[in-house]
């Protein structure tokens, strides 16, 4: 008796995969379209911006737009102001948050939970709830129309402490204990053990802080009324109100405002999903 051995048929052609690609590409186009349109419009004359059908790649790109924007408004100053604020806020945020988070995650001291609760309770608190008293207080301190006011209100957030603490909780206590026995002070443990291990969390916090500070416009809108202090977001608003029909220039200025965020994001994004996953930001 011979048994014929047959090969089981291979699974059918994978239509699901094709459908996935189609949907992914369509969605990506939707997400991207406004940016592409922005870029394309930034290289056009005003009268061509709304031409239909849309000419996605301008036949005669008008690079002049990118030259003109710097002289129409003090865009360079605005970029400088924003960069200064963003860098200072991000550095302060990273340092003070990770410092405080270390104590909340790894040290025992009186009122630890009560203090941490004070942070948590304010995470759900809309900024707008207390932005008025905060503004009045800053005015009282004489910080109105200073960059210091914006630094103070953005550098010490509950979010930063919370994010870093969640990450530190995932680092085994044994590591700190081993370091203590090895003879390290708590400051040394923070500096030489915790910081080197918290790149994913620090990157995540950097992206959030950088993006929020760079893009913030309500804060600067309330606090900065003098032109030489303004940030780029307020600058673009100013530009729009002064040259409302200069579509090409408006778009060029908007592209300039987007670029730094894009760079920071692309540089740090490989840590981002890992950072979100390991900091318990997913709940």
């Amino acid at each position: 008796m011979t048994v014929t051995i047959k090969r089981a048929p291979k699974a059918r052609f994978n239509w699901g995969k094709i459908a996935t690609y189609v949907i992914v590409i369509l969605v990506s186009l939707t997400m991207l379209a406004p940016f592409v349109w922005m870029l394309s419009a930034s290289l056009k004359l005003n009268r061509d911006v709304f031409a239909f059908p849309i000419e996605w790649i301008p036949s005669e790109p008008r690079w002049r737009n990118y030259v003109d924007i710097w002289s129409k408004i003090p865009l360079g100053l605005f970029v400088y102001n924003t960069a200064k604020l963003t860098v200072i806020v991000t550095v302060l945020q990273l340092l003070t948050s990770s410092f405080a988070a270390y104590a909340f995650a790894k040290l025992r001291f009186p009122y630890r939970n009560a203090l941490f609760l004070a942070y948590i309770a304010t995470i759900a608190m809309p900024w707008q709830v207390y932005m008025v008293p905060q503004f009045l207080m800053m005015r009282e301190f004489g910080l109105n129309n200073t960059h210091l006011a914006l630094i103070c209100l953005q550098a010490f957030t509950a979010f930063g402490v919370f994010l870093m603490r969640q990450f530190y909780m995932s680092i085994p206590d044994e590591l700190c204990e081993a370091a203590r026995i090895d003879g390290m002070s708590e400051y040394g443990i923070w500096r030489r053990i915790m910081l080197p291990l918290s790149m994913p969390a620090l990157s995540t916090l950097t992206i959030f802080t950088f993006v929020n500070t760079w893009n913030d416009f309500l804060g600067p809108l309330i606090y900065l009324t003098r032109t030489e202090l303004k940030t780029i977001q307020i600058g673009i608003r100013m530009f729009i109100s002064q040259y409302s029909a200069e579509y090409g220039l408006i778009m060029a200025a908007s592209v300039v405002a987007l670029i730094p965020v894009l760079i920071v994001f692309l540089a740090l994004q490989r840590f981002f999903v890992e950072g979100i996953a390991s900091t318990g930001l997913k709940g």
Partner: peptide, 20 residues
């Protein structure tokens, strides 16, 4: 007395080696 001043060394269950 702080752990570091007790002249002891410890081996942990999960080794607690510094990963970096």
């Amino acid at each position: 007395v702080a752990a570091k001043d007790r002249d002891i060394a410890m081996v942990f269950q999960n080794y607690a080696l510094y990963p970096h």
